[in-house]
């Protein structure tokens, strides 16, 4: 993953929050992750990548951030299944939008959602993982990109 490719994901995260909520997210400097200390929050939406690139992309966020997004969209059911659904949908949307630059052979899986901060996300071995940390409405979240 080149710096330019990482910037594509930064741009997509920015666009998602601006477009869906009308409130920009503060994006912090991306960094190379320590594989033993990957960020995992309350809900994590994992997307497998195959085709011309391999690996995974995941979005992880606290419940309160997801609740706020759902409320702003007019959703009244803020239950755990809908929070999980949103985490998966955001992971799916960000990965799918990346095909604008990576092309249609950048194949994405349906989302796998894991719940809980004590979960371990398995990334492909030997593939560097980059964390794009950001803050929206005072809640920290991350996008992790581990794609070769």
């Amino acid at each position: 993953m080149t710096e330019a490719e990482l910037r594509i994901f930064v741009g997509i995260v920015k666009h998602y929050f601006e477009q869906q909520t009308g409130i920009a997210a503060d994006i912090y400097t991306p960094f190379l992750a320590d594989p033993t200390a990957l960020p995992v929050s309350d809900y994590t939406g994992v997307i497998g990548i195959s085709g011309v690139r391999q690996g995974c992309v995941y979005f992880t966020a606290p419940a309160e951030l997801l609740r706020l997004i759902l409320s702003r969209s007019g959703e009244t059911d803020l239950s755990s299944p809908n929070l999980a659904d949103l985490a998966g949908e955001i992971g799916n949307t960000i990965s799918g939008n990346a095909r604008r630059q990576f092309g249609n052979e950048f194949l994405i899986s349906v989302p796998l959602v894991v719940k809980g901060r004590d979960q371990v996300i398995s990334l492909p071995k030997g593939v560097k993982a980059y964390v794009i940390p950001f803050c929206w409405q005072r809640h920290d979240a991350s996008l992790v990109v581990s794609v070769v």
Binding site: Q20, N92, T93, N104
Partner: peptide, 27 residues
């Protein structure tokens, strides 16, 4: 209504019988 934002996918969907394509995220 899909997150898949590449042109090839939109063209394929239109060829298969869709008439419109809206990219997620959408308002």
């Amino acid at each position: 209504v899909s997150a898949l934002a590449d042109k090839a996918t939109a063209i394929q969907a239109l060829k298969e019988g869709a008439q419109g394509f809206l990219c997620k995220p959408f308002t």
